[in-house]
Design a protein around this nucleic acid. Structure first.
Length: 412
RNA sequence: CGGGGAUUAGCGUAGUGGCUUAACGCGCCUGCUUUGGGAGCAGGAGACCGUGAGUUCAAAUCUCACAUCCCCGACCA
């Protein structure tokens, strides 16, 4: 991608409304654009990151045999009345009427929808287990949106639902999902812990929150030094882990995901049953699992930045490399241009996704500052100083090295 | 929803009854110049001062209402 054509204008100055670091940097880097309180559009840089996170989630969920679907955002009132959540879910639904005065809601989550979908199709124990997920826009009428992407009223969520014939099978899959979440967090460069949590208005017998460790996080948790378990500070004054007796230390965190064992909560009220081996009706055991994509993205920024800007982990960076052309006064700038074009082309042919800062009238300092702000993990410079070589620098390191194009190819 | 704050050009701000033709910095446009850490000079465009009422000889400035945004509370992905 040529930066001269990229739809992004970074901002040099501080943005007053954004007090949270991730909000500030995502706005300054022009990853997102605010439309309303708690409602954001994703611009090319931000959407690239978002898509990479999506794909990591897809890969990890596909590994545990989940199938991707996409349910409608528009949801009918009657399903929500079956579970009694039409008026009680918190945060409340965004509700409206269609032209026939029929009441609808924008989906904040899909337990009702998917339970309805599944009860109509899964009739026999032989149809189980089943794992379905989607990555889709969700709407929640929050009391108040806060901290940029950390709490919005519209956001993309991965929501996975599992259906089982027995509690034991649910428990097994629940563990697999936790494993998938761990992989997702690791690939997104996040340090995380799990806490046992209250189930809120989703309900169910057991649930865990996935907490990413970030110094600027709002939640305070006590983390075990040995295992990856943690507890909310409100839940107790304990000094040692109840599982392994190791010491607990207080850290700050952000909740990026949740896993719930729903059990038969929804199948009971919505009469979702299957025929067992004896032909007798049994309630479906369910689990549901969610990750907020925008929040995860903002959390990565909270956890990975310096005073110059964002430091994207490799797997979710908007580009693999940022190539800067610095046009000097003494050399023929056509020369630099040609060299840079060649490097750009060769990297592209090798399948490396490059943002190429080809802009003519931008100073070297401005290009460096902008590159640091955007946070692509690898910076490449071609200038009169680099001769027939290319300067290579990682965003999270200070040192630079001059290397040949062949050496450069081996870096990726 | 309760409490607090804000609203002046794309962004950040100053101006708090008449001295204002609404100013400054960033950004934007033109030209020249410049290119290793958000360059320089010169010129230029861009604002019904959030909306509506009111007070006053006179309102960006005072009053009231409304809207929007931010922060704290609550809840969450």
């Amino acid at each position: 991608m040529l930066q001269s054509q990229l739809f992004a204008k970074t901002k040099k100055e501080h943005i007053a409304e954004a007090e949270t670091i991730s909000h500030q940097l995502l706005l300054r880097g022009d990853f997102i654009n605010q439309e309303l309180s708690g409602v954001y559009s994703f611009l090319p840089l931000g959407w690239r990151v978002h898509r990479k996170i999506e794909n990591i989630i897809r890969q990890e969920l596909n590994k545990i045999n989940a199938q991707e679907i996409s349910m409608s955002v528009l949801q009918p009132r009657n399903l929500w009345q079956e579970t009694g959540r039409w008026d009680t879910i918190d945060p409340p639904l965004f509700k409206f009427k269609d032209r026939h005065h029929k009441e609808l809601a924008l989906g904040p989550t899909h337990e009702e929808m998917i339970t309805d979908l599944v009860r109509k199709r899964l009739r026999s124990y032989q149809d189980f287990p089943l794992y379905l997920y989607q990555i889709q826009d969700k709407f929640r009428n929050e009391m108040r949106a806060t901290n940029g992407l950390l709490r919005t009223r519209e956001f993309f969520m991965m929501d996975l639902y599992s259906f089982h014939t027995t509690k034991a099978d649910l428990n097994d899959y629940y563990k697999k999902v936790i494993g998938a979440y761990q992989n997702i967090c690791q690939r997104c460069g996040l340090e995380f812990v799990m806490t046992e949590a209250s189930s809120g208005t989703i309900g169910g017998s057991e649930s865990c929150e996935f907490m990413a460790i970030a110094d600027s996080g709002e939640d305070r948790i006590l983390v075990c030094e040995k295992c990856q378990l943690a507890m909310n500070t409100e839940l107790g004054e304990a000094k040692t882990c109840k599982h392994c007796d190791a010491k607990l230390t207080e850290k700050r965190s952000i909740e990026i995901g949740h896993v719930f064992k729903l059990g038969t909560k929804y199948s009971t009220v919505m009469n979702a049953v299957f025929a067992d081996e004896k032909g007798e009706a049994q309630l479906i055991e369910m689990g549901c699992y969610g990750i907020g994509l925008g929040r995860l993205m903002a959390t990565v920024v909270e956890a990975s930045h310096d005073d110059r800007g964002i430091i994207w982990p490799k797997e979710i960076a908007p580009f693999d490399a940022h190539l800067l052309a610095l046009f000097g006064k003494n050399s023929d700038s056509l020369d630099i241009k040609q060299k840079c074009d060649t490097v750009y082309q060769e990297l592209q042919e090798a399948g490396i996704d490059v943002l190429y800062d080809d802009r003519q009238n931008i100073s070297a300092g401005a290009k460096f500052a902008e590159a640091d702000l955007i946070g692509i993990p690898v910076r490449l410079v071609v200038s009169e100083k680099t001769g027939d070589r290319i300067e290579f620098k990682k965003r999270d390191q200070q040192k630079t090295e001059l290397i040949t194009i062949n050496e450069l190819m081996k870096k990726f």
